[in-house]
């Protein structure tokens, strides 16, 4: 067994870290858009809006039922063969769109579950004192649903950060792509991939800390 090449790892770290902003940009943008889309999808599902509801079900079924990599390839390489104008979409945009659609499908179900899980007495009480449906949703249902949904949504965000590593297949050199190329040049696979693993891990640990703070905040009404 060869020794660990620490000098190489130290030299590699700043190079890899320079790709971290792009990875985070993909994940944060994807998460913001996915959250927005997921809320819309969840509301359609909860209220069982005619016409839209079956379409949303189909959407969720497809994007949950196929691998993210398949969706990215289909969107980035497949569709442009049919619709030439789609080549105008670059790899970064395509990755964000792919992450958004894929994770929105999962998150919609998790948000829907959180809304449906609010006890009926809550909605009945809100309506009985004369709140409109919209007031009831904003003031009574969503704050409680957010508390329930937050941990699972954070899970998806963490998953999304790691899924950005697929972007290299679309020509986007992010954290993982940079690591693969460096490893191909040095053949120091262990050093390169352990370095990148630690970077991902630290980022996710930072997020877990944010999650704990957020849960305290959302739980404040229940704190004893």
């Amino acid at each position: 067994m060869q020794g660990l090449d620490l000098d190489y790892m130290v030299g590699l770290l700043p190079v890899l870290l320079s790709y971290l902003p792009l990875t985070l940009q993909l994940a944060v943008t994807g998460m913001a858009l996915a959250l927005l889309l997921a809320c819309l999808l969840a509301v359609v599902r909860v209220l069982q809006v005619p016409v839209l509801d079956p379409l949303v079900r189909l959407f969720i079924s497809f994007f949950r039922g196929t691998p993210l990599l398949v969706q990215l390839f289909l969107f980035y390489y497949g569709l442009p063969q049919v619709f030439a104008f789609l080549t105008a979409i670059n790899g970064i945009t395509a990755t964000i769109i792919g992450l958004t659609l894929h994770f929105a499908a999962y998150m919609a179900e998790s948000i829907r579950a959180a809304i449906v899980g609010i006890d009926r007495s809550q909605t009945e009480a809100a309506l009985s004192i004369g709140m409109t449906t919209s007031q009831m949703m904003r003031r009574i249902v969503l704050p409680q649903a957010a508390r329930v949904a937050a941990p699972t949504l954070m899970n998806y965000f963490i998953d999304m950060i790691k899924s950005t590593s697929l972007a290299f297949t679309l020509g986007v050199t992010e954290l993982m792509g940079a690591t693969q190329k460096e490893a191909a040049g040095s053949f120091l696979y262990f050093e390169a991939f352990i370095t990148v693993a630690v970077i991902y891990w630290i980022v996710v640990e930072g997020l877990s800390w944010v999650q704990r703070r957020m849960e305290v905040f959302l739980n404040r009404a229940y704190a004893r």
């Binding site: 390839f73 980035y76 390489y77 790899g91 297949t169 679309l170 020509g171 050199t173 792509g177």
Partner: peptide
């Protein structure tokens, strides 16, 4: 640069 499997599609 992109993963080898993406090159021909690109």
């Amino acid at each position: 640069t992109m993963a080898f499997s993406g090159l021909i599609g690109a």
